[in-house]
Design a protein around this nucleic acid. Sequence first.
DNA 1: CTCCTTAATGGAAATGGTTTCCATTAACAA
DNA 2: TTGTTAATGGAAACCATTTCCATTAAGGAG
Lengths: 157, 157
Amino acid sequence: MPRGNCRGQGWWHGKFQGCGYRLTAGREAILDILSKSEGHLSAEDIYIKVHSKYPNVGLTTIYRTLDVLSNLGMVSKLDFGDRRARYELAEGPKGERHHHHLVCTNCNKVVDYTDFIDEEVELLQETEKGLGAKYNFKITNHIIQFYGLCDKCSGKK
Amino acid sequence: MPRGNCRGQGWWHGKFQGCGYRLTAGREAILDILSKSEGHLSAEDIYIKVHSKYPNVGLTTIYRTLDVLSNLGMVSKLDFGDRRARYELAEGPKGERHHHHLVCTNCNKVVDYTDFIDEEVELLQETEKGLGAKYNFKITNHIIQFYGLCDKCSGKK
DNA sequence: CTCCTTAATGGAAATGGTTTCCATTAACAA
DNA sequence: TTGTTAATGGAAACCATTTCCATTAAGGAG
């Protein structure tokens, strides 16, 4: 029962119902936390933050909701190599804070960069459109990441 | 002891020693399998293939070697959402078979695409150079993935 | 507003890919 | 050939994530 092929324009209050999802306290709590937090939160990070405000929301719901949001394209699920998924709000393609990631494969340090984003976004939108048409995909999200060694780690022998 | 900041040009026979890594039968076996296989292999896939030829290579070594190769930028570690890492040889940035991925978030189907790759590669190389300089990263690898619903999955309600 | 269908929930238990441990082996520089 | 130490493999541990299932509640129908 994939319902991710439903893409609204506005913000989530309407987005959910329009897609057949129910709007619950837990889901609102998670979106609330996500929109107020900077950085790349793990499911547990989110659980702790949500739990302090809504103690009756369980970890399982966190995972389930993040999965839904991810499928809807509202949240990006990221892997920085530290053995747990990280999540962040996916702004619209022209969103102000749109960025990609630079990851150190040694210490797992992550740099959010916004340089070159404009050119990237332009190309990605074309690519997305072209790929969607050619392969019949309804694309909701994308990920770009560069991997390497950061300043400190590349110095060490 | 990060040694990934060592990037040779040639192929792996020399690449290893130059970086201080030892060239062992297991490592050769894994590279051999990887270079002869199409597709996105899991650690276990590789283990099975390697094991049939070199029965004394253990799964642990597979993981360790893939990690080394990944840090060297010779192998890309991928996440398609099926709960296990996938690996493939990372050709040079201008390699013939260079491609990126389109992933269905419902059935985990993966499409390798090469469309738009030229433009992408060009932009990515500039970006890589710029980012490397600005943030002092020695970049060895990158990943681009589009997520959405494939033909079949977007039809279902 | 009330009823009813069924999506959503949460806590506990299970899962399983990946890592850790450690004694043993072997790569390769001297 | 020898010595140093990286590399190995098998078993056990790890732990993020999923599955189970009985219970709750969202929201459309009347």
